[in-house]
Design a protein around this nucleic acid. Structure first.
Lengths: 198, 198
DNA sequence: TGACTTCTACCTACTAGTAAGTAATAATCG
DNA sequence: CGATTATTACTTACTAGTAGGTAGAAGTCA
């Protein structure tokens, strides 16, 4: 009884994939174990075997999302030097999410923040903190190299960047309008002296 | 049998007040008729008497919120001439919401968009459209008078402004940090050549 | 074999929503 | 005017359905 799934096996991954899609489209309070089970053609009990409680599922959802995101940021750092390019690649990450008709998982959860179990709240803040740290360092480095215009605190500007991107996704989704998101992202970049294309 | 409540009587207003608070804090999928009934010390059936279905309640919630907001904008127009001041007053509207530990009702509903009944979706877009129209006209007029810096399309900038404000609220709430919202709002104003204080 | 995974079958709590009834108030009318 | 009739604003008691969650049997496979 102690063992359970370690969350790395194929079944757990498929459940996380399905739950992630549902959470990004409908929110944490907008889907149920029954929804996941139906999409995967298994029983609810089987889903509970891998993720005993919804709080467990939610925490693992955020953790995996965070890891994937961190991996993408690491890849940007490993393949791109120009800070303006890094910012463009960062925005492309968000673009891909909304292009797949999804909201950022953590932006979605942020809306439901006060209804979430505490471990999810902690994991959520960690995600935003990591984004802020990465962006702030890119901004700071860009200011040093003169490739990015940052007049104020890099940290505060990093936060504001996350805010615009999350907000633009949120509203654009209500209009089913990807262009709306892209326009906001373009503005945000322009303020940093960065064009959409290099 | 046709009559029911007209939604203008004291009971309806109290229900809307309570539902609004719950919706702004927990989302439309995050509260139930039982929650409202409990807070008002009445029965669920009594709430259903005034708002037969949750979709009805949701639509009326957005309609009232929209009206109140439109009234606030009309008051700004009636009492302030300087466009920079108008923008500061606009942001103060958001500030007051988050200061009361709430998310913008429509920002919250935007997150849950795909789970909402269609009439709510329509009402939601109307709210954002009205914001955009008002802001765009202030921006355009500010550009003309030279009191606001708007380099690009006033309409697109208006959208972006709504996006930042909604996103900043969303994320700031996860940190319970009003200052975080204010910082983002300050940045947004600064980009328009508008200071926080006149 | 035994660990792992999934199933059947179930539970309790809660969801939105309804049916039927009841005080109190307001409207109508002989 | 008083008697009747509606209407308003609820109530109690209930529905069907769904939520998250569990015990234990059955199947799967190295």
């Amino acid at each position: 009884m102690k063992s359970r799934s370690n969350g790395q096996n194929p079944s757990s991954q498929r459940i996380l994939d399905t739950a992630e899609q549902l959470a990004q489209r409908r929110g944490f309070n907008g889907f149920s174990y029954a929804d996941i089970a139906e999409q995967l053609a298994v029983t609810k009990a089987s889903v509970h075997y891998h993720f005993p409680s919804k709080a467990d599922l939610g925490v693992r959802l955020i953790a995996r999302y965070h890891e994937t995101f961190a991996g993408a940021l690491a890849k940007i750092d490993a393949t791109v030097d120009d800070e303006a390019d890094k910012l463009r690649r960062y925005i492309a990450l968000y673009d891909e999410v909304i292009a797949h008709d999804r909201m950022c998982l953590c932006g979605m959860f942020a809306a439901e923040y006060s209804t979430l179990p505490e471990p999810m709240q902690v994991a959520l803040r960690a995600f935003f903190d990591a984004n802020e740290v990465w962006l702030a360092s890119v901004l700071e480095s860009g200011r040093q190299s003169g490739r990015v215009i940052v007049r104020e605190s890099a940290r505060a500007r990093a936060r504001m960047l996350v805010d615009v991107l999350e907000g633009a996704m949120l509203v654009a989704r209500a209009y089913g309008d990807l262009a709306r998101f892209r326009s906001a992202a373009e503005f945000a970049l322009a303020e940093l002296g960065v064009g959409v294309r290099a």
